[in-house]
Amino acid sequence: MKKYVLDLTVSAAEHINDKYVLLKLTHNEPLPQMLPGQFVEVRVDGSSTTFLRRPISINFVDYQANELWLLVAAIGDGTRALARLKAGDTLNCMLPLGNSFTIPENKNAKVLLVGGGVGVAPLLNFGKVLNDNGIRPIFLLGARSAKDILLIDEFKKYGEVCVTTEDGTEGEKGFVTNHSVLQRIRFDQISTCGPKPMMVAVARYAHSEGIFCEASLENKMACGVGACLCCVEGTKKGNLCVCKEGPVFNVNDLSWQI
């Protein structure tokens, strides 16, 4: 796919809580086509300690409103600078980058999308695309507590939402791999994104059940095109750049102990 470097305008900056902000970006021309699972590299202006671009998953694309959503966790100097953006500000983005999630050919496929923390971000757009293709997925979202569950009302537009929290303040108490939906439904495909321990646990479950599973990795990426080699991941095919060969991988191709 053709890549673009665009100055996008912030149409809204919605602070979900003290850590997360949802940036809604627009452009004076139609946004390019973007696939579910792809990401953007954003230039961080106004941060004296941030010299390289930051990778942000594509959270949602509203082509009718000509709007791109980015869900940002403000945890470092760069992302905190992004969280300070306001409506009318400009954000320079290189997009779209990376590969995409797999859309099942079988319209009756039962698809589970598992996310944790800010890793839920790419699953919203994927859920919409699946829904548009006649497949209504089930979302399984994990977090530490109720306040950390993100965009749940948006997810409910495109499928059933199941929740786990470590402290039991929302949904079922425990980790995503303990949720009762895994005993209730036999899934044909699982896609996951979030903390690596969570993704490994999901991959282990899928492997034990013979379910096709893919994971969107969140390695640090500076260039987004495979030049800087800072995002290399060990796979059964050798060391691969997540930004170029991923970020979505079949878990059976990764060098994970599953």
Rank of each mutant, 00 (worst) to 15 (best):
E245P: 06
L85T: 03
A74G: 14
G210R: 09
G127Y: 13
E41K: 11
S100W: 02
E172V: 13
K147M: 11
N131K: 10
P55R: 07
T9Q: 08
G134R: 05
S100T: 10
S100I: 06
S145I: 00
D45W: 01
N131M: 11
N99L: 04
M198C: 05
P122F: 08
K110T: 09
L68M: 08
K24T: 01
P30F: 03
L113G: 02
A201N: 07
V44Y: 01
K157H: 05
K3D: 00
T49H: 11
N17C: 11
M221S: 14
W256E: 04
P122N: 10
Y205M: 02
G159K: 05
R204M: 07
L70Y: 00
T102G: 06
N28P: 00
N252G: 13
D153L: 01
K156T: 11
S100L: 09
R204D: 15
K236R: 08
P197L: 06
Y205R: 07
Q183G: 13
N28A: 07
G246W: 10
Q189E: 14
E172I: 10
V242A: 03
L91V: 00
E218A: 08
F101K: 08
G174M: 00
A83G: 15
N178E: 14
A81M: 03
E14M: 04
G234K: 13
Q189R: 11
L240S: 11
V5T: 15
G168K: 04
Y205L: 06
L23I: 03
L150E: 09
A87T: 15
E105K: 12
V61W: 05
V129H: 04
D18W: 00
R184P: 10
F155W: 02
A83Q: 11
L25R: 02
E41I: 14
V181D: 02
Y205C: 06
L150Y: 11
V248T: 14
L254W: 04
A74N: 08
A83C: 08
E67P: 06
K236H: 04
R80S: 11
E170W: 09
R204G: 02
Q38S: 04
E67V: 14
Y4K: 08
P197I: 04
T49S: 15
W69D: 09
G78P: 12
P96L: 03
Q189S: 09
A222H: 11
G238T: 09
K173M: 12
M1A: 12
H207R: 06
L124Q: 02
P104C: 12
E245M: 15
A143R: 05
K110W: 10
L112A: 04
L31A: 03
F60E: 10
G88P: 04
P122D: 02
H27Y: 13
Q33K: 15
K19D: 14
E154T: 09
N239D: 15
T79G: 12
K3N: 05
F212D: 13
L85H: 10
Y158H: 14
L8G: 04
I211D: 12
V251G: 08
N133S: 15
P104Q: 04
K107W: 05
E245V: 13
A121N: 01
C241L: 08
A74Y: 01
G117C: 10
F51W: 09
R184L: 02
E105R: 07
P36H: 14
G210Q: 06
